[in-house]
């Protein structure tokens, strides 16, 4: 069997395949459309500028995550609108993680690969938007984008335990936020 010839990387292909993805990551990280639009333009131009240096789409995909994350973080700092996460809790320590304090109820059964209704996706996006930035960044990259914890650590300048701790806290918060929408019954 002959391997398919890879599609040549052109500005048009990059625009079509990657601009919506860059925009989605930036929008989730920054939480607003205007900032995400600026970041998308910034990243897209960076990609077009360096197009000749990529051997194929797989290499470009990895690089894009990194550049998009860096651009989003830089944009956040430039705007000086960083939401301070002031707390006495050490967010990078797994040992201090706390679970839900109230009652926990069973969730509805979920297929291995669920298909979300638009309304459910919107609820999840809103819940992501309420996560404090240190948790949100890690959560988006790990659970939504599917990057490895070690890769996320490199991108965000965090140790592996710190990535895990933030991810765990983010998941627990997401679980609490989503529970009312996905619960199916009380525990006996």
């Amino acid at each position: 069997m002959v391997a398919p010839i890879p599609e040549q990387l052109t500005p048009e292909l990059v625009f079509r395949e990657y601009a919506p993805r860059i925009y989605q990551i930036a929008r989730r990280m920054l939480g607003n459309d205007a900032d995400a639009e600026d970041v998308t333009q910034d990243v897209l131009l960076q990609v077009v500028r360096k197009l000749d240096t990529f051997r194929g789409q797989s290499q470009l995909g990895t690089w894009l995550h990194r550049v998009t994350v860096n651009a989003a973080l830089a944009h956040r700092q430039k705007r000086a609108n960083r939401q301070k996460y002031e707390t006495s809790e050490n967010i990078d320590e797994l040992a201090t993680v706390e679970g839900p304090t109230g009652p926990v109820n069973r969730w509805n059964e979920l297929p291995e690969e669920p298909v979300l209704a638009a309304e459910q996706a919107e609820i999840i996006e809103q819940a992501i938007g309420t996560l404090p930035e240190p948790f949100r960044d890690v959560y988006i990259l790990a659970d939504v984008e599917g990057l490895a914890n070690s890769e996320i650590g490199e991108m965000l300048g965090l140790s592996l335990p710190a990535v895990k701790s933030r991810l765990h806290r983010a998941r627990l918060r997401m679980r609490d936020a989503l529970a009312p929408h996905f619960e199916g019954g009380l525990a006996s």
């Binding site: 989605q24 669920p114 979300l116 659970d143 939504v144 997401m174 989503l178």
Partner: peptide, 14 residues
């Protein structure tokens, strides 16, 4: 429910 939370996030559009 924690596992479901992880699965749900993976199902979000990229």
């Amino acid at each position: 429910s924690y596992k479901h939370t992880v699965r749900i996030a993976k199902a979000l559009p990229k």
